[in-house]
Every structure is written in structure tokens, then in C-alpha cells.
């Protein structure tokens, strides 16, 4: 038992009976993010699965005030909240934008880059389910190489995933962190920490999606864990430019043992058409990223 489990708030701020699918990785992650954020926070969210999770009019399943915004505008919406709150003297409120990978890597990147460059005082959290899930699993620039989606239905995605974290790093932010629903306490801690920091904070959550990735809902935590064991997804923080591994990835870095990526790929139908070349290419990419991270960690 993780002994620090008891420090997490027992109250739920994402209420049961919401519209997320069975076993949704976003929903598990959001449960902890909302626990960490609930006090004095205003959320803003674009069109996505999260819009649906928040619920249809006139009821919402989330106990934090929220302003829905258009797909491309998330970070600007946050910037407007920050400006509006500052202008009206409500400066003790944290503004948090929560968007999918489409709303972050793709259509939302301009507003996000703008807000980050201006040093807007807010948290931008991207839950990365590696595709446009709300519209039925189309490819995004966060979709990994070799994945089947409804817009890469035969040839699979032929490009590697975009390195959004590196793009955000180039904005010289005070805080960048990656999190996973397989490590809810770590996720919670990172949101608590982000809430205390001033400036633009960027968090990225890997959010396994049973219908979109093609695995049974019961395996969400297993898949998220395998992503970390294989190094496909790495848990770390970058604080004022200083990189360090965290949580399970830290242990893996110390022991130097990662599982091969196939262990992760073979569990998901979306990778069933991946060629040997693609698997090799993905393994190489993961290896080189890992080395890059290790170098950064050494300083």
C-alpha cells in the first residue's frame, strides 16, 4: 500500500454518474487533478471528451467553476480569465486550462504558445489520449507511429508523435511535469505543486482510452503502467529548466531496466497493423529520448 494514499482528499470533486466511458484514463486522472485543484480555481476547457465528462446542460458533474471555450482558444481563454480576475481584484484564484491533445498539440498550440510566451499565470494541463477521441478516434499529431485511427485506417500513422514537452520546454517555463493515472498520488502531488507556483505551468497526462486504443476497460491502469515500464511515457519534472525523473521513472532510471516497447504495443488493437520496421523505429525513438532525458538528469 502506498502509505501516502491517506493524504489525498477523500472528497470527490468529479462526481459519479458522469458521461466518461467505462475505464476512461482521463476520468481517473481528472479525479485526482480536481482533488488537488478544487480550492479557489476556475477551469476552462475546449471541445473534447472532457466537455462531455463535465456534462450536458443543465447539470454538471464537476464541482469546480468552469468556462467552456472553443476548440482553438483554451490558453487564450485562460489568459482572459487571468486578466479579468486581476482587473477585478480577484487575484487569489488559480486559472487552470484542461485540454486534450488535439486542443494542445494541434489546434490549440498557437494560443498556448502565446500565453506561455507572455508568462500568463496559469496551469495548462494536457490530457493526452493520443487522438481526437470526442469525434471518434481520428489521428492527431500526438498519435504515435504505427497507430490505426479512423483517419489512418489502413496504412497506420506514418509519423512519430510530436514532442510537445520539448516545445513547452523551449518556452522556459517555471514548471513542466508529466503524470500518469497509473500513479495517482504522483499526479495529485504534481498538481498541488503546480498550483503553488507562479507563471505558466504545463502538465501533461498520459490518458489511456479503452475504445480509442482498443483494449478492455479493466486494463487502463495496466496500460498506463506499461507505458512507463517501457519508457514510451516518462515521468519527470522540469523546474526552472532543471530536469529530474520522478516516481516510477526515477526507479527505472536508477536500475536501468526498461521493458521492450512491444510489451506495450501488443496489448492494444490500434497497433495490430504495425510493421516490424515501425516497431524498430519506435523502439529507437524511445531509446534515444530516454538517453536524452538521462543526460538532462545528469545536468
Amino acid at each position: 500500500m502506498p502509505e501516502n494514499l491517506f493524504k489525498v482528499k477523500k472528497e470527490e470533486y468529479m462526481l459519479p454518474g458522469n458521461r466518461a466511458c467505462q475505464g476512461c484514463g482521463l476520468s481517473l486522472a481528472y479525479r485526482y487533478a480536481t482533488k488537488a485543484l478544487h480550492q479557489k480555481t476556475i477551469l476552462t476547457i475546449p471541445a473534447s471528451c472532457l466537455t462531455v465528462l463535465h456534462g450536458l446542460y443543465p447539470t454538471t458533474s464537476v464541482m469546480i467553476p468552469c468556462l467552456n471555450c472553443t476548440f482553438a482558444s483554451t490558453a487564450a481563454s485562460a489568459a482572459g480569465l487571468v486578466a479579468g480576475l486581476a482587473a477585478t481584484g480577484q487575484t487569489d484564484t488559480t486559472v487552470v486550462a484542461f485540454a486534450g491533445d488535439g486542443g494542445t498539440y494541434d489546434i490549440g498550440i498557437q494560443a498556448l504558445s502565446g500565453a506561455a510566451e507572455r508568462g500568463t499565470d496559469f496551469i495548462f494541463a494536457c490530457y493526452d489520449n493520443e487522438g481526437y477521441m470526442n469525434t471518434g478516434t481520428q489521428r492527431s499529431s500526438a498519435t504515435p507511429l504505427g497507430a490505426l485511427t479512423t483517419t489512418t485506417p489502413i496504412l497506420t500513422k506514418v509519423q512519430h508523435k510530436k514532442d510537445m514537452l520539448k516545445i513547452m520546454e523551449a518556452h522556459h517555463l517555471p514548471y513542466i511535469a508529466t503524470t500518469s493515472p497509473a500513479y495517482p498520488i504522483d499526479l495529485y502531488d504534481k498538481f498541488v505543486k503546480a498550483k503553488r507556483i507562479v507563471g505558466t505551468r504545463y502538465l501533461q497526462i498520459q490518458a489511456p482510452c479503452p475504445p480509442g486504443w482498443g483494449y478492455p476497460p479493466r486494463d487502463t491502469v495496466k496500460i498506463a503502467r506499461l507505458a512507463i515500464e517501457t519508457g514510451i511515457f516518462v515521468l519527470f519534472e522540469i523546474e526552472d529548466g532543471k530536469f529530474h525523473f520522478t516516481s516510477r521513472s526515477k526507479t527505472i532510471a536508477q536500475r536501468g531496466r526498461r521493458l521492450p516497447v512491444v510489451n506495450y504495443l501488443e496489448k492494444q488493437e490500434r497497433f495490430q497493423k504495425m510493421s516490424m520496421d515501425q516497431i524498430e523505429s519506435l523502439q529507437k525513438m524511445v531509446d534515444s529520448k530516454w538517453q536524452e532525458y538521462q543526460k538532462k538528469a545528469e545536468g
Partner: peptide, 22 residues
């Protein structure tokens, strides 16, 4: 009737109904 002039929801458990039925 509701007085809202723009759409805004209030909080409740079971927004999607009794999801146990799923």
C-alpha cells in the same frame, strides 16, 4: 422556468443518469 440568459449548469451527482445501468 430557468432564468438563465446563457447556458450554465449546476452541480449534481448522476448527470448521465444511473451509470450503474451501463
Amino acid at each position: 422556468k430557468d432564468e438563465n440568459i446563457s447556458a450554465m449548469s449546476t452541480v449534481a451527482v448522476g448527470e448521465a443518469g444511473r451509470t450503474g445501468d451501463w
